[in-house]
Design a protein around this nucleic acid. Structure first.
Lengths: 320, 320
DNA sequence: TGTATACACAACCCAACGTTGTCAATCAGC
DNA sequence: GCTGATTGACAACGTTGGGTTGTGTATACA
C-alpha cells in the first residue's frame, strides 16, 4: 500500500517563497524559478498549506507578505543558506562544471562570469567550441555539462535526451568603421542595410548562427556575405574595419571603444540573439542547478512586437 | 514544454541521510522513516548522485559513512535544525494538533508525552474517546487530526480517505490481586488462564478492542467475561481487585506498584496489542508530520513466531 | 469603459518515487 | 563446507505530485 504523509515543507517551496518575497510578483518570480506563474502559485499555496497559514496577501493586482511571511523570510534565508553551505562543503572536491560558452566575445561568458563571481563555490571549466552544432555532441557524450547557443537551425533533430532553456536575449547592433558612410548615424533600420549589405565572419561549424544570419538577411532582404572565420575578437574587429561597404553585426553589450569601430543600434525592429543553455537531462553533475539558480529564464518578445525581431522558428519549442 | 532540472538535494534526502547515518542500517532506518528498505536505498542513492559523491560505504552486511558522509553529517544536522526552526517559528500560533489517545492508561499517551517533551513546539490537544470505533468518525470529519488504536475489527470497512500506520506493539501482562492464587507466579501461559478466565471492563464502543479480546479468548480457549466499563485507571484497578478468580489483562508498561495488584508476564506466547495511528490523508495540519517524526514504524512479529501472538486478521493490511 | 495585467482554477499528462518481488553476497551455525 | 537468514540492490509496476496550457475573474489605468 502506498501511504501518504501529509504535505511536508520542502526546499523548493522555501526557495519559491524567498524569491517571491523578493519580487512580490508571481510572474517574475516564476521566471526566475523557471516555472510558470501558475506552477509557482501552486507551490506557494502548498507551502502555505504545509505551514498552516498564508504567507502572502494577494489581490489580483498586488502581492505582499503577511506578518507570518515577514517572520519567516529571515529564517528561511538562514535555513537555505545552511543547506547550501552543507551541500557546498561536500562538493568542494567535486569536478568543476564544464561549460561551453561559444566564444569569448559573446554574452554567455559574461553571464557565467557573473554567476561565478556571486558564488565562489561554482567552479567552472570553460570551453569555446564555436557553435552549438559542435558543442551538442559533446554534451550528449557528457564531455561537457552544459553549452550556450541558439537551439534552432541545428543540422539534426533535437536529441531527446537533452533539455534547453532560454536564458538571455541580446540585441544586435551594427559595428561600423569610423570612416564608413553610416558611421555617424545614431541608429539604423534593417531596411537601411539593403544597399550596404551585411558582412560577417563565417560561423564555420555553427550551423545555428549561419541559419540565424541567413534568416535575418532573407527576412529583411539584405545581402549577406560571409568572410573568413574570425579567430578571436581582434580578428573580428580587423575584418569589420576592412569593410568599405557592408556592415558587421554584433551584440549590443560589446564594447567597441578603441577599436576604430562605432556601434550603431539597429531599431525598428531590433534583431535579438536568443541564447539558450543546453544540458543533458540525466547529467548528474551536482553543480548544474547551482548554475541555473544564477540564470534567469528569459522570454522572447511577442511575435506581434514590431520593435524586436527573432526568426520565426525560434518561437517554436525545439522538438526531437 | 516540460523541462527537467537535474536532481536537487531535498529535505527528505537529508533526513534520510541523517537517520541512516545514525542507524547504519537501511532496514531499521527505513522503518524509522516509514519507507521500505528499497525505497530508502533509492533515496540515499539519489542524494549521493545529487551531491556527486557516495556518502555511505556499503557491503551486503555493513554500512558505514564515507569521509564525505562524515563531513556532511554535522552540516546536515545544522541545516535540518535551521529548517525546523524556521517552520516551528511560523507554526507557534497555529492550532494545536488534536489527537485521540484512547485512554489515559494506554501506551499512546506515553508516546505522545515523549514526543512533546522532545519537541516543545509540538502542541497537542488530547482527547480520549475510548475507542477507534468512536474516534475514526471524528477523524473523518476532521474534528481531530489523529487517533491511536487497533485498526482491525472495526464495525465498518476501512474508510479510503484515512491512512494508518503501526507505531507500537505492546505486550499484554496479567494484573492479579495480591491474594489471588496466581499472584506469586513469575509468568503465566495463556493456557494457564483456561480454568480462571479473563475478566475485563467492557470496552463499550470500542468494537476493535472487544474484537481483540474475543479473538484472544477464542484462540486460547479461555473464558472471557466483560464487567462494567471502567472509568479511569483507578476504577479499572478496583474492578481487577474485586476478582477472586478471573484475571485482568493490561499493558506491560503499566506500573502496578501500590495498587494491590501484581503484574505477571504472559508468555508462550505473549499477546501483543498492535497500536496504530490513524489520520486523514488530506489533513493539511502542518504538525502531523512533526508528530510522525517522533514515532517509529513498528512491525508485527512473524506469523510463525511462537513466542508472540496477535490476531490473525492483524497481519492483513486494512482495506476499504 | 475597454484593455492590459494580475493571480486563481481546471484539465491534462509526464515522470518521480513509492511499492512488491526477486536476486546476489555475506555471515552464523550445524 | 553447506544451509538458511539477512543484508542491500535491481526490476517491474502503479500512483500521484507537480508540472503544463488554457481559461476565468478582478483590478488599474488610459
Amino acid at each position: 500500500m502506498y501511504t501518504l504523509l501529509p504535505m511536508e515543507v520542502d526546499i523548493q517551496g522555501m526557495r519559491a517563497f524567498v524569491i517571491t518575497a523578493e519580487e512580490l510578483h508571481f510572474g517574475r518570480a516564476g521566471e526566475r524559478l523557471f516555472v510558470s506563474q501558475q506552477a509557482l502559485s501552486k507551490r506557494i499555496r502548498r507551502l502555505e498549506e504545509a505551514l498552516g497559514m498564508p504567507l502572502f496577501e494577494r489581490t489580483t493586482r498586488t502581492v505582499e507578505l503577511t506578518p507570518a511571511g515577514q517572520r519567516l523570510l529571515p529564517l528561511a534565508l538562514e535555513a537555505l543558506s545552511a543547506f547550501d553551505k552543507a551541500i557546498a562543503a561536500i562538493r568542494v572536491s567535486a569536478d568543476p562544471l564544464r561549460v561551453d560558452v561559444y566564444d569569448e566575445r559573446f554574452t554567455p561568458l559574461r553571464m557565467l562570469r557573473r554567476a561565478s563571481e556571486r558564488d565562489p563555490g561554482l567552479q567552472v571549466e570553460l570551453s569555446m567550441r564555436q557553435g552549438l552544432a559542435v558543442a551538442i555532441p559533446a554534451v550528449r557524450r557528457q564531455e561537457i555539462d552544459a553549452a550556450f547557443g541558439r537551439v534552432h537551425d541545428l543540422p539534426w533533430p533535437w536529441p531527446s535526451e537533452l533539455a534547453c532553456r532560454l536564458v538571455h536575449v541580446e540585441p544586435l547592433h551594427a559595428f561600423i568603421p569610423q570612416d564608413h558612410m553610416l558611421a555617424d548615424k545614431s541608429e539604423l533600420r534593417p531596411a537601411d542595410l539593403r544597399e550596404w549589405g551585411i558582412s560577417m565572419p563565417d560561423p564555420a561549424g555553427a550551423a545555428e548562427w549561419r541559419g540565424y544570419l541567413r534568416r535575418l538577411a532573407d527576412h529583411f532582404d539584405v545581402p549577406l556575405r560571409f568572410t573568413a572565420p574570425a579567430i578571436g575578437q581582434r580578428h573580428l574587429v580587423e575584418q569589420f574595419l576592412r569593410e568599405k561597404k557592408a556592415v558587421g553585426l554584433g551584440e549590443m553589450s560589446i564594447d567597441a571603444t578603441g577599436t576604430g569601430l562605432r556601434r550603431v543600434p539597429i531599431v525598428d525592429p531590433t534583431p535579438l540573439l536568443p541564447w539558450s543553455i543546453v544540458w543533458h537531462r540525466r547529467n548528474p553533475h551536482p553543480m548544474l542547478q547551482t548554475l541555473f539558480r544564477h540564470l534567469h529564464a528569459a522570454t522572447l518578445p511577442s511575435p506581434s512586437d514590431r520593435q524586436r525581431w527573432v526568426p520565426d522558428v525560434d518561437f517554436h519549442p525545439v522538438e526531437s
